[in-house]
């Protein structure tokens, strides 16, 4: 049972209040009608499955009904940060490798 900080409610809540919604920062191609089948298939079907740091989208389903992003370590399950929709993560695989994070 994860303990997740909702950036909109400003509180930690129990995992049972949330729904996982897959990988974060998946961008829908801007002009779907004119993108290639490959680009469209990549958007539809291909997701990362990293061992370690991952950016995920979660929904505070039985709470404020807002979607937000979570940076989570898929090995330790530690949540390193949560951030609002439209924001970028402060902690990334790159920043971690560069020692940017404690």
């Amino acid at each position: 049972m994860l303990h997740i900080y909702c950036p909109y409610c400003g509180e930690h809540r129990e995992e049972s209040e949330f729904r996982p919604k897959g990988q974060a920062h998946i961008l829908r191609p801007k002009d779907p009608d004119n993108c290639s089948d490959e680009v469209w298939a990549d958007y539809l079907f291909f997701r990362d499955n990293p061992r370690g740091l991952h950016h995920e989208m979660w929904l505070h389903a039985t709470g404020c009904r807002k979607y937000f992003n979570v940076t989570r370590d898929t090995v330790s399950y530690e949540i390193l940060e949560t951030y609002k929709m439209g924001e970028q993560p402060k902690i990334t695989a790159q920043s971690r490798a560069a020692g940017g994070e404690k």
Partner: peptide
């Protein structure tokens, strides 16, 4: 707060 209550909301 809006939260879980038993198995409901």
């Amino acid at each position: 707060v809006t939260t879980t209550f038993a198995k409901a909301t």
